[in-house]
Structure formats: structure tokens, C-alpha cells
Design a binder for these strands. Structure first.
Length: 433
RNA sequence: GUCCCCAUCGUCUAGCCUGGUUCAGGACAUCGCCCUUUCACGGCGACGGCGCCAGUUCAAAUCUGGCUGGGGACGCCA
């Protein structure tokens, strides 16, 4: 019977690395038709928090995973003490200062890792180990050994940082007469700089990425690509598709550096793949607690604005700077538009504003037609007017298609914003008018 | 310091197990061109790699050893 587990400690939010370990476990279980157990390692009572536990559970679900059983180590303290007593009775452990120490009887320990092959340990850094702390709670290696054995894990898939714990646990298994599971140590995820993933170099927890507007499927997809590959030059793959072809033996041995650029690209791909309705629903959910769109905004207007940006977002939070001009008039002209604004086209823009204000059916076809005529009549190329017009309307050098934008903003706003730029040129008034 | 793991473009990877089909394929990023209404999107293209040294072999990215480099573990944290 295939049985694996993910064993997070609720002393922090679900980490990127933990999420991927969870993903590999889940994939393995679902691929083989085995069981996936979630084991909460909350033996450190002081550092474990309900808030973290809730978030971990929520993130696992959000990423698209489910589990078959859940256990809490904090509810099993008696069990660990019972087994510690067995070790004392067998002469393999002893009590000292209220703590219980396990005595390793070291012989070479060999593990046959599913990913790395044979790993041989010729020595151990210590001769004994605390297994029950003086407050009566178990230490990690001990509770881990007891639970993996009692819960009958067939395979332990965990991070590479646990390799050195493995011989210790195996020696405990042997002392207790337990059957030793198989192991698969997955490589660690490194920061973009190459070192350890830490808060100093950006987001490390799943919830932070969610807050930034990354989609669950995109994160799961990206994480899978770190140390595993679906083959066939495939980059985009859903969890559901991955579970059909996932094999733990195909996981790489090499640690992988996290790349925000690639995550952004994948996330953008997933946003593009959404249907307009799915996309709108997604953003409305995302924007719920963000206080970005003014209360009074018309539903239909909001929808049109959001659709304008759909295929050019890499993450939902991009909207905050890119689409702000659609909801607020108090924007300023970006620093990088200076080059465009240096050319004073006040008279030309005035002509444009007058022409546009005469349009009755203010849609993208009409505005474009009128716009091109104005440019031609002034002897300008369309692009000479496009740039300053975009700056006038949005304060930005880049954005969605100009005429689509005009149609969405509507005649009144377009004309008044054009006039605002004219005033900026003529009277030198602050752009923050 | 001791023990352990790892090593293909800047980054993620395919290939390595079963040596020749690979003067190493894809993706991200970067750069260029095209499209065009700027950016983006899209299309096309460029740049760029088997860490080093030995060995085995007719033949090595692929097998072996050493070196170098990177990472991890050495808590009454997990």
C-alpha cells in the first residue's frame, strides 16, 4: 500500500519549498493511487500558532491539493512517551534531568534514496540524542520516526535538508524493530541569488504570492518545473495532467534557483488562458479586500477596464499601477514620459481635442478614424500624436491600445484630459491638476 | 571543523541509466527584425552551456577517479 505524507510545522506560513514538497507528495500519491497524509508537526507548543496552521491548510487547498487523513502530533504525546519507555526498558535509552536520551549504536547506515541512489554514512556527529525533552514533548527525529512507522509510510518524500536526519531515524527504527520506509530526498529551492530562500530576497510564502496576484495553478505549475520536467519541451501543465505522468524517480538531484521572471511569465500565460468571465470573476475576488476600485464604479465600466488589461498582466497586482488612471483623475505624468512631453504639441492636441469632442458615437472605430484624419491634416504621423495622447490620458508611456482605451474612458474624460495636457504645456501647470 | 549532497546556456531544463543518431534540444531573461498605434501580444532570429584534469573506449555531456566550485546538516527547532 502506497502511503506518503507531508509534515509541515505550523510555526510559519506555508513556504515555497514546503509547498513543492507537498506537491511532489500529492502527485506521487495520486499517480499511484495511494494515500496522502497530512501530519501537523506541532510539537513545539510555544512556536506553533493556529494562524499558521489555518494558513497552511488553506494554501494547500488553494493550490489544488487534498489529503486523505490528517494527524496532529500534539495529540500524540502519550504515544511518544510510551515508545520512549520501551527504549528505556530495552536499555537503548535513559532518563536524565527529566529528559530521555536515545543511545545510538552506530554501524554504517546505508539508505537507498529513490532520487539519489545509495547514500552511505560512515559516522554520526553524536552518540546520543534527546528524544523526549524535559517538558515531556518529543523531539523531531523521534516523533517523526514513531509516526512514519506507526502510520506505515511506504515512502518518505522530503527536502534534501533532511538527508542527515535520515540515518538517525533509521537507527531509531532499528532499535524499535520497525520496518524502514523508502526515502526520496528532493532538492532544495534556492533564491535567485543562489543562497537560501529567505525573506530578504522577496516573498517566500504561498500567501504572499497569492496577495501579489499570482494564480494558484500558475504557482503550482512553476513549482513543478523546479527539479522536475514533464518532458517534451512542455512548460505549461496543470496538476491534473502532471499527476498522470509524475514519477518520483524523474525528479532531479540538483537544487534549483527560483526565478521570478519565469513565474511571471507562467502566471501571465494562465491569465491569458482564462475566459473573459473567469478572468473578471478572478479579479473581483482578488480586489475584494484591496480598496482599489472606487465604490461608485459602474459594473459595466469596471468590466471593460479590466478586459483592456487582460492579456498584458503578469500578475493581478500589476493593475494597481497600470489601470489606476481608469478610476482616478489625480495621476501624474510618469518620469519616463518626459521625452515625449518635451515636444510641445499643444496646438495639435487642441485640434484633436476639438475634433474628438464632435464625435457622437464615441467608439474605437470613430475615434481612430477622426484621430488619423487630424494627424494627416496636421502633417503628422499617427504615432506623433499617439504618444502624447497616451500620456495625456493615462500619465503613462505604455498601456492598452489607445483607441480601445478612449472608448472605455469615454468622450468627456478623453477631452478633459487632453485639455489638461494642453494646460500643462501652455501654462506650465502641474500635471497633478 | 566533521559528515552528507550536487555539478548541461545568466536561470529552469531535455539528453546521461541502456557511450556513437547531439559540432547538445526547449523555456525564461536579454538583444535584433517583422507586425503595428507606443509598450505589450504574436511571428521570426541572435546571443549563450556539457566546471577542470586524468582514465576506460575505436568513440564520452553520457562510464570511473581526482580536483575545483556550489549547497545542506551538525538545537531539549522542525
Amino acid at each position: 500500500m502506497v502511503k506518503v505524507r507531508f509534515a509541515p510545522s505550523p510555526t510559519g506560513y506555508l513556504h515555497i519549498g514546503g509547498a513543492r514538497t507537498c506537491l511532489f507528495n500529492w502527485l506521487y500519491a495520486r499517480h499511484t493511487g495511494g494515500k496522502f497524509i497530512l501530519r501537523i508537526e506541532d510539537t513545539d507548543i510555544a512556536r506553533s500558532k493556529k494562524e499558521y496552521l489555518d494558513e497552511i491548510l488553506e494554501s494547500i487547498k488553494w493550490l489544488g491539493m487534498d489529503f486523505d487523513e490528517i494527524y496532529y502530533q500534539s495529540k500524540r504525546f502519550d504515544l511518544y512517551r510510551e515508545y520512549a519507555q520501551k527504549l528505556i526498558d530495552a536499555g537503548r535509552a535513559y532518563k536524565k534531568d527529566d529528559a530521555i536520551f536515545f543511545k545510538y549504536d552506530f554501524a554504517n547506515v546505508e539508505i537507498d534514496d529513490l532520487i539519489r541512489g545509495k547514500i552511505v554514512f560512515n559516522e554520526l556527529p553524536k552518540e546520543e540524542e534527546v528524544i523526549i525533552k524535559k517538558d515531556g514533548t518529543p523531539t523531531y527525529n523521534f516523533s517523526c520516526c514513531i509516526d512514519d512507522a506507526l502510520m506505515e509510510m511506504s515512502l518518505v518524500i522530503r527536502g534534501e535538508d533532511h538527508i542527515s536526519n535520515t540515518p538517525k531515524q533509521i537507527l531509531m527504527y532499528k532499535a524499535l524493530g520497525f520496518k524502514i520506509p523508502q526515502y526520496a530526498h528532493v532538492p532544495l529551492i534556492m533564491s535567485e541569488e543562489g543562497g537560501r530562500m529567505s525573506k530578504r530576497y522577496g516573498a517566500t510564502s504561498i500567501r504572499e504570492y497569492k496577495q501579489e496576484g499570482y494564480l494558484a495553478q500558475a504557482i503550482a505549475n512553476y513549482l513543478l518545473l523546479l527539479s522536475w520536467s514533464p518532458g517534451g519541451n512542455r512548460e505549461i501543465i496543470t496538476l491534473n495532467e502532471a499527476k498522470d505522468i509524475f514519477e518520483i524517480k524523474k525528479v532531479n538531484k540538483t537544487a534549483a534557483a527560483f526565478s521570478m521572471d519565469k513565474l511571471n511569465w507562467i502566471n501571465g500565460e494562465y491569465i491569458k488562458k482564462k475566459s473573459p468571465d473567469e478572468y473578471i470573476a478572478l479579479i473581483e475576488e482578488y480586489l475584494k479586500d484591496k480598496d482599489f476600485v472606487p465604490e461608485s464604479t459602474d459594473k459595466d465600466y469596471l468590466r471593460k477596464v479590466l478586459l483592456l488589461f487582460k492579456d498584458r498582466l503578469s500578475k493581478l497586482s500589476d493593475l494597481f499601477v497600470r489601470a489606476r488612471f481608469c478610476f482616478y483623475d489625480d495621476y501624474t505624468y510618469d518620469e519616463d514620459t518626459k521625452e515625449i512631453l518635451d515636444r510641445n504639441l499643444s496646438k495639435e492636441i487642441k485640434v484633436l481635442a476639438d475634433k474628438l469632442s464632435g464625435i457622437t458615437n464615441f467608439n474605437k472605430e470613430e475615434t481612430e478614424k477622426e484621430f488619423r484624419e487630424v494627424a494627416a491634416s496636421l502633417g503628422l504621423k499617427p504615432k506623433d500624436l499617439v504618444h502624447p495622447t497616451r500620456v495625456a490620458l493615462s500619465g503613462k508611456k505604455v498601456g492598452p491600445g489607445l483607441f480601445e482605451s478612449m472608448e472605455v474612458l469615454g468622450k468627456e474624460k478623453v477631452v478633459s484630459r487632453l485639455n489638461r495636457l494642453i494646460d500643462y504645456w501652455d501654462k506650465g501647470t502641474d500635471a497633478n491638476g
